[in-house]
Simulated scan of single mutants.
Amino acid sequence: MPHPDTNIILIGMPGSGKSTVGVVLAKRISRNFVDTDVVIQTAIGRTLQSVVDNEGYLELRKIEEKILVGLSCRGHVIATGGSAVYSDAAMTHLKRNGLAVFLDVRLATLKARVRDYTTRGLAKRPDQTIDDLFAERFALYTRYADLTVHCDALTHEEVCKQIEDLLAAPPSPLTRTM
């Protein structure tokens, strides 16, 4: 297990289970939990979808970066928004005191889990399909991931167990995956 001050940062597509797994994992390993989408919405006093609808996806990414770069916590489980990985500054800040865990879920599974992405506050171009967004973000998730858990056939509890097992394993110079 990493040092108690080290944050566990969950990254992945919307629908990958970051928020739910984050709550369960935080309970299992006795840490506080932060959902950055909630932090953003509380800070700006409105929904992510409202920002996308009124100011566009780039404005949402700008707001998200500002909030994430200003986030200061230690020893937490942090569920990031799916677009957090677009900001190198935000990810560098988060990883300064944390390990990024990529919750890897196949596109078909995501589509089955989230039937309507139009209400999720996705920071994507209006012309961009979910398939395109998935391909674009997958490269970013793998770039920033310290650990990867393949979550398709797993329950939330099983995902947490895999994360715990990876965190307990001896450090490796390579990204660990299960």
Rank of each mutant, 00 (worst) to 15 (best):
G56L: 09
V23T: 11
S19M: 14
G98F: 00
H3I: 05
R106I: 01
T20C: 12
P173I: 09
L166K: 05
R74E: 14
P2D: 15
R115Y: 03
L140R: 15
Q162M: 09
T109L: 00
A135Y: 12
S72W: 04
L122Q: 00
E158H: 07
N97Q: 06
L60R: 01
H93S: 05
R176W: 07
V69K: 07
A139G: 08
D88C: 05
C160M: 05
A153L: 13
L154E: 09
T47F: 09
V69D: 02
Y141S: 08
S87V: 08
P171K: 07
V159S: 02
V24D: 10
V38K: 14
A100G: 03
V77H: 04
I40S: 04
Y141Q: 10
T92S: 09
V24I: 13
L174N: 15
K18F: 07
Q162W: 02
E55G: 10
Y141G: 10
L140G: 15
D132A: 12
I67D: 00
P171Q: 09
L110Y: 00
E136Y: 15
Y57R: 07
M91R: 00
P2R: 12
I40F: 03
S72V: 13
A145S: 11
E157F: 08
R125I: 08
N97T: 04
L10M: 13
L58E: 15
L71P: 04
S50T: 08
E158L: 11
S19A: 09
V52G: 04
C151T: 06
T129G: 09
N32T: 10
D88E: 14
R176P: 05
H3G: 04
S72K: 14
L10E: 07
V77A: 04
N7D: 01
V101T: 02
I40W: 01
T6S: 07
C160N: 00
S30G: 14
R28Y: 03
R176F: 03
E64V: 03
L94H: 00
I40Q: 04
R61P: 03
V21H: 08
A139H: 07
L122N: 01
D132Q: 13
L60M: 02
R176E: 13
T118D: 04
A168H: 15
Y141W: 08
R28W: 03
S19Q: 06
C73F: 07
R28E: 10
R96N: 11
I44H: 07
E64R: 06
G70C: 05
E59S: 06
T177W: 15
L167K: 13
Y144S: 14
Y57G: 00
S87R: 03
F138Y: 14
D104K: 06
R28G: 02
H76G: 03
I44V: 11
